[in-house]
Structure formats: structure tokens, C-alpha cells
């Protein structure tokens, strides 16, 4: 990839920011409608402790939910592929949980866990949305182990444990990693949604900062919190992409072909 192509997104970003800044000043748009980038940066620097703490809080909830989603999704996928009966019994409910918009479940969940435990509602909602791609992808991956290799393991009298550990889990790894990339972003959405729906001062994540700033018509601060949320999402995606590349680069066509 040429240097120009690598730099192209940044150059475009700078141009857009400059046009934004210039346009807002030239047309004298009030800051509560559209603050210039300089005002957003100022809002960010004006209160770095509160926003930083909120960033940390949202990150912590997202990562916890993501970790639980990976552990639960992989474990359930293994159970599903061991027991077709269990799979057919549980699968429809997993789908129901997935297709019901998480936004619509949030109020109910908040009633159950209590508005003073928004963090718990965040964790559960983030887990619900992050869980399904892990379950679906890992199940598919475990089932897609090469039929010839399955025959080979049978020929050598491999135990079920050996088949799982040495054949099925490695076969599922590319699928799992692809699922993790999707789940990472979804976990962040789940963590944000709960705070929005709670809409009270009991939340302390970035989403609450946006709601709070919106109530006060402090648009620059809304943008600042929004920018931090975007950065968080980008960071999660970048880290998971890196993990994917490192894990697959020697052997899997999806990554090895790019070398």
C-alpha cells in the first residue's frame, strides 16, 4: 500500500475538520447547535477527570461483558455440538434473545436489577448482544472441521476430548475470532444502551455524560463524550483485528494471503 493511500483517511479527516471549523465560524452557527472542533476539544480538556473516569467505566463494563460473552458463547457452542437435543431445545431461545432489539429489553431489565444498579444492567445487556455472534460463529466453526481429518482421528482411536481439543477447537478459531470482532462492537452498544434507557444520575459511563450534557444543552461536551466513545470502539476493533492477525497469519488463508 502506498504512503498516500495510507495517509488518505487522515488527510480527509483534517480537511473535514478544517471545513467544519471554518464553516461554523463563517456562518456563525451557535455552539449548542453545532460546536466547532476547537470547542469540542476545549470541552474535553476542561474536565478530563470526569470524562476520563467515565471512559474507564464504560471500558470496564464493555470488557467484562465481552469476556463473559466469549466464555459463555464458546462453552455453549461446545455443549451444542455435543448434544443435538440441547441445541435444538435452546437454539430458538438464543435466537429470540438475539432478534429482540436490545433497546426494548433494557427498560425491563432496569426494573429487575433496579435503577441504582445501572452498571449491572449494562453488563447484562452488553453480554446479551455480544454473546450471540460468539455462539453462532463458534458452533459453525466446530462443525466445519475437515471430514477427512475427522476420519483420521477416528482411525487412530482419538477420544472425544482429543477430537475437541486438537481438531474442532483449532478449526473453530478463525470463526471465533471473526465473531469476537463483531461482539466487541456490540458489547459497547449494550453498555451504552443501558445508561441511555436509565437516563438517571446513577450511571457513570460515557453514555450518561452524553445524556447529562444533552439535558444541559452542553453540545460541545456531548461531542467530546461521543468522540471518546468512538475512540473506544475503534480501539476495541483494532485490538481484536490485531489478535486475529497474530493468531492466523502463519496458517489461515484469510490472513496469510495478505503477507
Amino acid at each position: 500500500m502506498s504512503a498516500l493511500r495510507r495517509l488518505a483517511p487522515m488527510i480527509l479527516g483534517v480537511i473535514v475538520l478544517a471545513a467544519w471549523e471554518g464553516g461554523v465560524r463563517l456562518l456563525a452557527i451557535p455552539a449548542f447547535v453545532l460546536p466547532p472542533p476547537s470547542a469540542v476539544m476545549a470541552a474535553l480538556l476542561a474536565d478530563p477527570d470526569t470524562l476520563g473516569l467515565s471512559l474507564w467505566f464504560t471500558l470496564a463494563v464493555t470488557l467484562q461483558a465481552f469476556a463473559l460473552a466469549v466464555a459463555g458463547g464458546v462453552a455453549l457452542a461446545i455443549l451444542f455440538t455435543r448434544s443435538p437435543l440441547l441445541a435444538s431445545a435452546l437454539y430458538p431461545y438464543a435466537v429470540i434473545l438475539q432478534v429482540t432489539p436490545v433497546m426494548a429489553i433494557a427498560p425491563l431489565l432496569l426494573v429487575w436489577v433496579g435503577y441504582e444498579r445501572v452498571d449491572l444492567a449494562q453488563l447484562i445487556l452488553a453480554w446479551i448482544v455480544a454473546f450471540f455472534p460468539i455462539l453462532g460463529n463458534t458452533t459453525l466453526g466446530l462443525r466445519s472441521a475437515d471430514a477427512g481429518l475427522r476420519d483420521l482421528f477416528r482411525l487412530y482411536g482419538a477420544s472425544k476430548w482429543q477430537v475437541l481439543w486438537r481438531l474442532e477447537l483449532p478449526s473453530a478459531l478463525p470463526y471465533l475470532l471473526a465473531g469476537m470482532k463483531i461482539s466487541g462492537g456490540l458489547a459497547l452498544i449494550g453498555a451504552v444502551v443501558a445508561e441511555f434507557v436509565a437516563g438517571s444520575g446513577t450511571g457513570s459511563g460515557l453514555a450518561w455524560r452524553i445524556v447529562d450534557a444533552s439535558n444541559r444543552l452542553n453540545t460541545p461536551r456531548m461531542f467530546a463524550a461521543l468522540a471518546l466513545l468512538s475512540l473506544l470502539g475503534i480501539a476495541i476493533f483494532a485490538v481484536l483485528s490485531l489478535v486475529q492477525r497474530l493468531a492466523l497469519r502463519r496458517w489461515h488463508d484469510s490472513e496469510a494471503a495478505n503477507r
Binding site: 477427512g148 481429518l149 483420521l152 482419538a158 486438537r166 496458517w251 489461515h252
Partner: peptide, 27 residues
């Protein structure tokens, strides 16, 4: 009994030595 299939049927995630050692590992 050893078996060779029409495809090489190697584990793509494992080095050649680990692929060849598989039957011994399983045993």
C-alpha cells in the same frame, strides 16, 4: 493401519512435524 487420502488432509494450523506426530500424540 495408516491411511492416505486423496487430499493431503493436514491440519493447516500445525507445523509439518506436528502434523506427522499427530498419530503418536493421539496414542
Amino acid at each position: 493401519i495408516g491411511m492416505v487420502f486423496q487430499e493431503p488432509t493436514l491440519m493447516p494450523w500445525a507445523r509439518i512435524q506436528d502434523n506427522v506426530r499427530l498419530p503418536l500424540d493421539l496414542a
